[in-house]
Design a protein around this nucleic acid. Sequence first.
RNA 1: GCCCCCUUCGUCUAGUGGUCAGGACGCCAGGUUUUCAACCUGGAAACAGGGGUUCAAUUCCCCUAGGGGGUGCCA
Length: 473
Amino acid sequence: MTDAVVTRFAPSPTGFLHIGGARTALFNWLYARGRGGTFLLRIEDTDRARSTKEAIDAILDGLKWLELDWDGAPHFQHEGAERHREIAERLLAEGKAYKCFATPEELAAMREKARAEGRAPGYDGTWRDRDPSEAPAGVAPAIRFRAPREGETVIEDRVQGRVVFQNKDLDDLVLLRSDGSPTYMLSVVVDDHDMGITHVIRGDDHLTNAARQSQIYEALGWARPVFAHVPLIHGPDGAKLSKRHGALRIEAYRAMGYLPEALRNYLARLGWSHGDDEIISTEQLLEWFDLDGIGRSPARFDFKKLEHLNAHYIRESDDEALVQRIKDLLPEREDGAALLSEINDEGWEKLHRAMPGLKARAKTLVELIDNARFLFARRPLTLDPKAAKVLDETARKHLAALAERLKALETWDIEAIEAAVRDYADRAGLKLGKIAQPLRAALTGRTVSPPIFDVLAVLGREESLARIADQAG
RNA sequence: GCCCCCUUCGUCUAGUGGUCAGGACGCCAGGUUUUCAACCUGGAAACAGGGGUUCAAUUCCCCUAGGGGGUGCCA
């Protein structure tokens, strides 16, 4: 079991779970689950002031919706503060860290000066070798890491390859703040080590941190995990993904009617590939996903492609599951509650029966709901402009005549209905479309709908005839 | 400013020292069809630029440009 994989998703709860975080979580999940390993969740809340309960809930909900399950309870980083402090003290005792009495003002001035002189704006090491006895009174010190000043730190990254950093470019980072709280940089290293993380898969905005963390591992004598820094996802304009690009929280995708399996497929293909394969089930992803397939360049999010995949997965879903998803989704939609209250058991039954025709023509669940509205509409139907146009004088006359034929039907099933309508069209010397469109307009109020005979059958004899009568002339 | 990373159709990508540079989304045209989808067929569409190395570079090296990330007592 020494080679068992342990990955983690470690978001900081200072914002919501966005698409980039979701992909990082997915990659970690796939890598671990695909190899019988362990996938852990760690909330990086060492910045107490900026961490919120709402953000934590949003992250948990988002992962649950995406069906990315983690092992055990979520680990809250701040709860390990004691342990993290211990390690900082150990480093201090070993001379691998030191107390820094610089005040925020001094640090700001230092940065200002460095920039003016065109130097790296990092900490200049003022207290690195100064005796603590020279400390000014009343200033609580921060503990800084005594980073190597010469030589280089090399990261053998599974995605980025061999990345070399000159140690002179990396300054002495803070391990423990002056209030005694551990910083992220210390906590990640200690937690990843303590939790037995074997593979750190995260956004490449952490690449420089990997070098700093690497130095801490070195100082502690701990083995480093395998690093895999994945390029970030960009907005449609190529810039960093931000709120400006609209709905980006993961809940937003759910509300827009995307299926988690579609999002997983899409996200997996964004930055990772397996030859020419595009439609890849989660089972297949688990089997195929590997760090080697991750590309090195950033990708842009493309809704069109997501929609295409979503349409595919909607078509593949079974009818009952889709009904359930719609029941779950409706409360989240603005006008959903109203619609929900209008659908009784019979309505749900109709939706279920109409599902084969509906799911074949919807790119999202929201679109599907919209296309299903005619099922629950109350008579007389409101016609959209195009439908109203279809129902001209002639069309209405045909509807009246056709209604007589339909009334005479012994059984109200698709075969019988279709036979009757086709026969009527034949006798009237009309192409089927000439009678199908007016029927569609009268029954759904629109010019686009599932196949018309399905509509007749699902609506039932009584409702169908009544709707036709409403429009017949 | 400094450090690091990236660059194949509009987008996601495959790919190799010699390929008609492949697929997918989207787009256009046609087919099928009771509408719309789906589906089928066809089409337009890319190796950022410049130097090398080489018999031969999209592929290897260097430079430039462009993009991104980092540069906190944030994570």
